[in-house]
Nucleic acid binder design. Structure first.
Lengths: 130, 130
DNA sequence: CTTGACCCTGTAGTGACTACAGGGTCCATG
DNA sequence: CATGGACCCTGTAGTCACTACAGGGTCAAG
């Protein structure tokens, strides 16, 4: 019966204590048992679930996508197709964002290292103003 | 004396009417004159300034960066160095984001197209759970 | 017995909008 | 002159995923 506190759970998963409470409030992490003083008492199930959430967030999945993935993860007999669709959609979104940022990088690359002396001839201000 | 309404200003700049009012509230766009009925009346100065803001946003500059760039743009004798620093910092941030997204793309690319039948063998769920 | 690190709840703030609700105005048409 | 629809007004609340308090209570070491 080794239970740990919210601070210990945070240390083990690299998740902020406030974020853990937030995940509980939005129903991503189940409410744990409480000590006599009202302290949250977590077990290995919580640890595993929070690790899962943390990895999903590190991969950039939205909270709602993680909610769906968690639902899948707890039903080993479900088809894996749904998980694949979620991941593929997310990958497409990541690629869309990369393309957009590459566009920005190119445009900004043309602008920086402006060697004009004053704003009047500055090509950065000019690019925005005209 | 050709003044135009907020809707016309929005059409000409591609900025949402609600966003224009928001820019006014946060002090990015000066308060225009009003008609007898209380309608906002914009002129060419507003049009130019909002175009500037729009281009800055399209380049991914934050509102605060645009605020600083606008301050520079209205002082042609200021050194252009400050504008260059803002643009260079933003470019560095864009490059940081691209690198992070490339990392995600790689990780997600390894995961998708999972051909397992059920969640039990799914490599997506597995990547998150273990 | 005190100190400091931890825990609790609840609320408000972040960025950059977006979406109403509930009203007023303008103008063209019948 | 009435009416309808497109526009305008203010103000507030919602979005996403947290983060930062404020104002308390608890626990363990020294």
């Amino acid at each position: 019966m080794k239970a740990f506190t919210i601070g210990q759970l945070g240390d083990r998963t690299g998740v902020n204590v406030e974020t853990i409470r937030y995940y509980e409030k939005i129903g991503l992490l189940p409410e744990p048992a409480r000590s006599a003083a009202g302290y949250r008492q977590y077990g290995d199930d919580h640890l595993r679930r929070l690790h899962f959430i943390r990895r999903g967030r590190d991969l950039g999945f939205s909270i709602e996508a993680i909610r769906a993935l968690l639902r899948l993860a707890t039903h080993p007999d479900y088809p894996c197709q749904d998980a694949d669709r979620l991941a593929a959609e997310h990958l497409a979104e990541v690629e869309r964002k990369i393309a957009e940022l590459e566009r920005l990088r190119h445009a900004l690359g043309e602008m920086v290292n402006c060697r004009a002396h004053t704003v009047a001839e500055c090509r950065i201000i000019d690019a925005l103003a005209s």
